[in-house]
Amino acid sequence: MAIGKMRKQQEMLQNPVLRAYLPETHWMTDSSTLRMLKNYSTVFIKPDQGSGGSGIIRVKRLRGGYEVRCGPSQKIVGAGAVIKAIHSYRKPRHRYLVQRGLRLAKYHRMIFDIRVYLQKPKNHWIIAGMAARVAAPHKFVTNYLKGGHAEPLQKVLLSIFHNNQTKVDACYRKIEGLSMTIARTINKWHLINELGVDLAIDENGRIWIIEANSHPGHRLFTQLPDRTMIRTIMENKRSIGKKP
Rank of each mutant, 00 (worst) to 15 (best):
G55F: 14
R173S: 15
W189F: 08
R7A: 14
K120N: 11
K5L: 06
R95P: 02
M28A: 10
W208V: 14
N163T: 06
R100Q: 15
G55Y: 14
Q99E: 09
V168H: 11
K84N: 15
R93V: 08
P47Q: 08
N163C: 05
A79I: 07
D198T: 07
T42F: 00
L220A: 03
T25W: 13
K242A: 13
K188G: 00
G205N: 08
R115Q: 09
T181D: 12
V98C: 11
R184I: 00
N39C: 07
P47W: 09
H94V: 13
L118N: 07
Y144D: 01
S159N: 14
K155L: 13
H108Q: 12
I233Q: 01
M130E: 14
T29F: 05
L157R: 04
M6W: 12
A135K: 05
F44W: 00
E235W: 03
K155Q: 12
W189E: 02
D113R: 01
L224E: 01
A135W: 02
I192L: 07
C171K: 07
K8D: 09
L118Q: 08
V17Y: 15
R206P: 04
A128I: 02
P121W: 08
I83L: 11
K139Y: 11
I126S: 08
I45G: 11
V17G: 00
G65T: 06
Y117C: 00
H162A: 12
V68F: 03
G217Y: 03
P225K: 01
L145A: 15
A170L: 11
K167C: 10
N236M: 01
I56R: 14
A85E: 07
N193G: 02
Y144P: 01
G53M: 03
D226Q: 12
A2Y: 06
I114K: 01
L195F: 05
Q119H: 06
G205P: 06
L158R: 15
L102Q: 03
M180W: 07
A79E: 15
T232W: 00
